[in-house]
Design a protein around this nucleic acid. Structure first.
Length: 276
DNA sequence: CAAGTTACCTGACGGC
DNA sequence: TGCCGTCAGGTAACTT
């Protein structure tokens, strides 16, 4: 479900609700997510802590506590976090709840349980390369995410360009939707092998990845079936999809029929006329 | 090493 | 109505 724009939208939505609040209770459904929930640690370490800030790194939401420790959440495919009245009923697939001193509650809901939650002590969090982000590539908006970097990183490999930009060790945050959308805008076919891309191709791709992600954040993310922000509102970037899920429809640019092809096990969409 | 495959989960949908 | 296969925004652990 959530790629970088959706995680960023949730992070921004949560921040004003959480910053400065104290966690007074912790609840857990008892079910494991992708990894076991460190419930006993959370209970010990989070209760009574004040929230300093909420930030995003890759597709992770980081809740920083005043003590310097970090509560980190990954939303997987179907995860979502939102703010609810503490008195409201929990719903099916709620897995974690942090009760706050203003009577509200932060809840993590995740139907498929592909998400994960992590706790880093202040000293672990301070180590720049904590285990979680040790192998993570640059953020798409970082200067280090450059045409030179991609050209060089691609040099001793030969997968398709779509698989390459979806690899978190190469660059973080780009998932199945925004990979297809960025490649369409850069006029590069997703099946192209990376050793065939020129520096100009990489440069165009970077520009369009940034444009698409930025636009999607401004639109509040993409809501396909169930994405909601921290205030339970839909995003509307799906209105701006040019190719994702549009196989059989006419290309908005040239009227050719948009194709669907499975690449690396993931549905991929492109215009074979516009994208070479 | 890189690249390809499988596994983790629930639910929606289409075909029979 | 229900049973079955397929698919879904992610990613790590396998195997080849």
């Amino acid at each position: 479900m959530p790629e970088l724009p959706e995680v960023e939208v949730i992070t921004r939505g949560l921040r004003p609700h959480l910053k400065g609040k104290t966690i007074i209770s912790i609840w857990h459904s008892g079910k494991h997510l992708r990894t076991p929930v460190p419930y006993e640690i959370l209970r010990k370490k989070l209760r009574g802590e004040k929230i300093a800030d909420v930030t995003r790194r890759a597709k992770y939401i980081q809740i920083a506590l005043n003590s310097g420790s970090l509560f980190i959440v990954h939303l997987g495919m179907t995860g979502n976090m939102g703010i609810f009245p503490g008195s409201s009923r929990k719903t099916k697939h709620d897995h974690i709840e942090l009760g706050l001193d203003d009577g509200k509650a932060l809840r993590l809901n995740d139907v498929r349980r592909f998400g994960s939650v992590h706790f880093l002590s202040a000293s672990d969090a301070q180590q720049k390369e904590s285990t979680i982000f040790k192998t993570a590539g640059p953020e798409p908006f970082d200067d280090s995410f450059s045409a030179d970097y991609l050209y060089k990183t691609a040099s001793n490999r030969n997968i398709t360009v779509k698989q390459f930009i979806m690899t978190s060790q190469v660059v973080v945050g780009i998932g199945n939707i925004y990979a297809s959308e960025s490649l369409f805008r850069a006029r590069i076919r997703p099946t192209r092998k990376i050793n065939s891309l020129t520096k100009k191709n990489w440069s165009d791709l970077i520009d369009n990845i940034r444009k698409v992600l930025k636009h999607a954040i401004e639109c509040g993310g993409s809501t396909i079936s169930d994405f909601l922000n921290a205030n339970q509102e839909s995003g509307y970037f799906q209105m701006n999809f040019k190719v994702y899920g549009k196989n059989g429809e006419k290309c908005s640019c040239c009227s050719s029929i948009i194709k669907k092809e499975v690449i690396g096990g993931r549905a991929s969409f492109f215009c074979s006329n516009c994208q070479k």
